[in-house]
Amino acid sequence: MWFYEKKLQYPVRVSTCNPKLAKYLIEQYGGADGELAAALRYLNQRYTIPDKVVGLLTDIGTEEFAHLEMIATMVYKLTKDATPEQLKEAGLGEHYVNHDSALFYNNAAGTPWTATYIQAKGDPIADLYEDIAAEEKARATYQWIIDMSDDPDLNDGLRFLRQREIVHSQRFREAVEILKEERDRKKFF
């Protein structure tokens, strides 16, 4: 069960109407290494992973939904009140035809989200290594978006999200260490 707190994890500010930036940002919404993929991956893997790290997957998976909500707010603000003409200029003409200004789970190139982006192998090491890779890929995506963006307010929020990827990667790496550990076993070499 979840409790919902009606506020964002980190305040989202956007300085200009910039649908082009929204088109880039949607990669982190419905892309392969985006927040939706991350949340669904972790919250699904947790059923078949050793007890010691279930809580970690629950916590991080939950936080990814908080990030998803931040990205949604950013995309919404960047496109709010934009005319069809402005959307077209930003390369969102196809999006407008299908969705108007509604958000949708697709990547920056318009490919819809698919469950084939994520895996649950049932092998704890394989799954955690995928999770570490996902965090590093999301971190890189945030960097590339920051590189392309000239919106300082937006970048402030993106830097926060990038920092969270670093912390999550650290915790997944620690989870691997926990599962490797021999500490509580009666094992003599």
């Binding site: 960097q143 830097r159 926060f160 999200l161 990038r162 920092q163 969270r164 670093i166 912390v167």
Partner: peptide
């Protein structure tokens, strides 16, 4: 975005 100084990495 982190409690720990060690992990802070401004980009």
């Amino acid at each position: 975005g982190t409690l720990w100084r060690f992990f802070y990495d401004y980009y």
